[in-house]
């Protein structure tokens, strides 16, 4: 096969190039994350109307839905990065996958916790073993498993490989989470946001939600870049450019 990727794709593989490139992008994402999260939070918690049945407790949606969406996107990114790392032996891809794991685990915990807090007054139970909740818990365990497996190897390369394979195996859970509410009888309601349909709520409710989702993605990008930059420095400690960078501080 003589297929060639554009040059920027090969550049992404260089930790040094990533370090320099991300330092230019970071301030933009930090700014966007702060603006979007502040707007979304104030709009969602103060100005959006309460729900006719749940009253104000529905407002937890403004944290729960973005966190759940992000927990799944983060996993997909981790698995794809792992696959790229395995196929092309790309250091940067493994660094990205590693940075995704810890963030993904935290955001999955946020999703489960906010869901439980909302479930108690609305459903009458903190936790129910229905397909959606269980598959989300499995996602958290997968994140924890990937982190633990990577840490279990002394050799970074072996750890990267093992973690990538596990994250690829766990990828099957993503469609299960997504379609669990359609395939089986669950207590959890169907998706709030879908690409194809209009959300089943008025704009003054879903616009702040959309802002929160975008804000969460920007926040994710910031954290991911920061973690990846730190990991780049740690892994490339012995190279001349990192040494020069440290001396210049």
């Amino acid at each position: 096969m003589s297929f060639k990727f554009p040059q920027w794709f090969y550049r992404l593989a260089s930790p040094r190039w990533f370090y320099e490139f991300s330092s230019k992008l970071l301030p933009w994402f930090i700014g966007a994350a702060i603006i979007l999260l502040l707007t979304g939070t104030v709009w969602g918690l103060v100005f959006a109307p309460p729900d006719y049945q749940q009253g104000n407790s529905f407002r937890i949606i403004y944290v729960h839905v973005p966190a759940s969406i992000l927990a799944q996107s983060c996993y997909m990114l981790m698995a794809v990065a792992g696959a790229i790392g395995l196929i092309w032996k790309m250091k940067m891809a493994h660094i990205m996958a590693q940075s995704c794991a810890a963030f993904g685990a935290s955001i999955a915990i946020i999703s489960l916790a906010t869901g439980a807090i909302w479930g108690k007054p609305t459903w009458g139970a903190w936790w129910v073993w229905d397909a959606r909740l269980t598959s989300m818990l499995v996602l958290l365990f997968l994140y924890v498993g990937v982190i633990a497996l990577r840490g279990a190897f002394e050799n970074t390369q072996s750890g990267d490989k093992a973690a990538a394979v596990l994250s690829l195996v766990g990828l099957v859970n993503i469609p299960i989470i997504k379609y669990s509410v359609e395939w089986w009888n669950t207590l959890h309601q169907p998706a709030t946001f879908t690409v194809t349909e209009k959300p089943a709520m008025p704009p003054e409710m879903w616009i702040p939600l959309l802002i929160m989702v975008l804000g969460f993605y920007c926040f994710f990008t910031v954290i991911l870049m920061q973690r990846a930059r730190l990991e780049v420095l740690q892994r490339e400690m012995k190279t001349s450019w990192v040494q020069a960078l440290i001396k210049s501080l």
Binding site: P49, P50, D51, Y52, Q53, Q54, F58, I61, T122, W123, G124, A125, V128, L187, Q189, P190, A191, T192, A200, M201, P202, E204, M205
Partner: peptide
Amino acid sequence: IEVLAKHDENYMPPEIAE
């Protein structure tokens, strides 16, 4: 022995519901 309420994906401000 236990009753749970199932919520749907529709959210509405109280005025619209009325």
